[in-house]
Amino acid sequence: MTTDFSRESVKRIAELSRLHLSEDEITQYQKELAKIIQAFNALSQVPLPKELLGDARSALGMAKGIGADDSLSRMCSDEAKNSIATHDFLAQSPDREGVFVRVPAILASST
């Protein structure tokens, strides 16, 4: 991990976030993100006890630690219940056409 954060990288993150940044903002974020990397690097040095090593990408760690204790395996029965009327939903839509929400044309598929 380099200490320099490139403008390209900042632009990429802005694109992923769907945020438009000015040139000044990009410069600002170059510095901020570089600072953050340093701070977070310390995190990666923290020694962990054996049972917490390994697969950190799953919420199993969360299951052992915090919210999910006796709320494990919470499932609901298969019963249909619509709870918002079409009209109420569309009333706050910035642009609509009949019973649809309307957006500008989608040029390319995203997935």
Partner: peptide, 22 residues
Amino acid sequence: TFALSAGYYDAFYGRALAVRDM
């Protein structure tokens, strides 16, 4: 977004979850 983006997940978010458990 940065913390979750490819290449940084394990070092950042993944790591943070583990330290949080600790």
